[in-house]
């Protein structure tokens, strides 16, 4: 009984916080215009000679993020190889 009351109280608290956050969310489809976005859209094709502006941001302007992503994938592959390596059933 006590656990059920605790469960209902927890659900109400979490739902209240979630709905309160949802009421103040930014309107969908109404993006704020940052000056950096306009800079990318105007100058990416002239500076980097690329048509896909998304790729120019991912691999050039913000290339350090992509380096981190590649390092994360490399770490994941290394951990899987260490988990399933040959001869791990003998010990």
């Amino acid at each position: 009984m006590k656990r059920q009351v605790l469960f209902v109280v927890a659900v109400l608290v979490v739902a209240g916080v979630f709905l309160g956050a949802l009421a103040r969310i930014h309107p969908f489809g109404d993006t704020t215009r940052a000056p950096m976005d306009d800079y990318y859209l105007e100058n990416a094709q002239r500076e980097r000679s690329v048509n896909n502006v998304v790729t120019s941001i991912v691999f050039d302007y913000r290339g350090f993020d992509t380096l981190g992503e590649a390092a994360v994938l490399f770490t994941a592959v290394c951990s899987v190889l260490a988990l399933f390596r040959e001869g791990s059933e003998k010990r």
């Binding site: 980097r48 790729t55 120019s56 691999f59 992509t66 490399f74």
Partner: peptide
């Protein structure tokens, strides 16, 4: 075109 962006695409694709 696109310089190192194309090269990095191929490298990341290989990886």
């Amino acid at each position: 075109s696109a310089g190192t962006i194309s090269l990095m695409n191929m490298a990341v694709g290989l990886e």
